[in-house]
């Protein structure tokens, strides 16, 4: 890890307009949950805000935005060479970038899910969702960082993964759960609160999350090791 890269990545994330989109998402989630809770007579009415919106949509969107903000633009326009033309291991660069994206995902995304869950009813179910969001947020941020290092269309590919693969395919084909970051998170959350589903099994969920996280960050570092500076398109 490298303190300077860490600082620069944090500045890249905080110093731009897109940061406001990043925080607006969970704020809107929490606001709407409060609204529903206030308007509805059913005490459980607000839970879908967490299970259908906060966890499967807001969290991965925050992770995509965070991961692509710390790496995407620099890879896109080639200015990352200023960071890479240094006697700093490229894996250290990747890890530092990931730590920033990861911290942003957890603080903005997972915390947003937790607050929404607390508003929706709290209790052990909220704790379950927090654990699920921490696990899935960690894995998402690593996967999307790897995508950002690999393709300029990282955001679109990431969205396809979340919306089409995890969303659509996950709705029709239950087997997709075995290859779904969100479902792994829910499985781990299930260990804390049985209110959450158990789509796969715990060892698989933990192992797969770990493999994707470590593998994703390592792959991002490996791509940076082979970063090629070419002319304009």
């Amino acid at each position: 890890m490298n303190g300077t890269i860490l600082k620069l990545a944090a500045q890249a994330l905080l110093g731009r307009r897109r940061f406001w989109l990043l925080v607006a998402l969970p704020l809107a989630l929490i606001g709407l949950t409060v609204l529903i809770r206030a308007l509805s007579s059913d005490p459980d009415a607000a839970w879908p805000m967490v299970s259908f919106l906060g966890f499967p949509l807001v969290l991965p969107l925050v992770a995509i935005l965070a991961a692509s903000s710390v790496l995407g633009p620099e890879v896109d326009d080639g200015s990352i060479v200023y960071l890479l033309a240094k006697p700093v291991s490229r894996h250290a660069v990747a890890i530092s970038k990931w730590v920033v994206a990861w911290a942003a995902t957890l603080v903005v995304g997972s915390l947003g899910v937790l607050v929404a869950a607390l508003v929706a009813g709290g209790g052990s179910e909220a704790a379950g969702w927090l654990v699920a969001a921490l696990v899935a947020g960690t894995t998402y941020s690593a996967l999307f960082l790897a995508l950002s290092a690999f393709t300029r269309h990282a955001v679109v590919v990431g969205l396809i993964f979340v919306l089409i693969w995890e969303g659509l395919a996950g709705g029709f084909l239950s087997g997709v759960a075995w290859l779904s970051i969100g479902q792994w998170g829910i499985q781990v959350g299930h260990a804390v609160s049985s209110e959450l589903d158990a789509p796969v099994n715990l060892p698989w969920a933990l192992l797969a999350s770990l493999v994707v996280t470590v593998g994703g960050v390592w792959f991002a570092g490996d791509r940076l090791r082979s970063f090629a500076l070419t002319g304009d398109e």
């Binding site: 620069l8 500045q11 110093g15 620099e74 200015s79 200023y82 033309a85 006697p87 500076l229």
Partner: peptide
């Protein structure tokens, strides 16, 4: 793939600087 070489090299690429912030 030899990052230690950058102790000796200084590089001024043609690309624009995008660290505008």
């Amino acid at each position: 793939r030899h990052t230690d070489a950058y102790r000796l090299i200084g590089l001024v690429p043609e690309r624009e600087l995008s660290f505008g912030y």
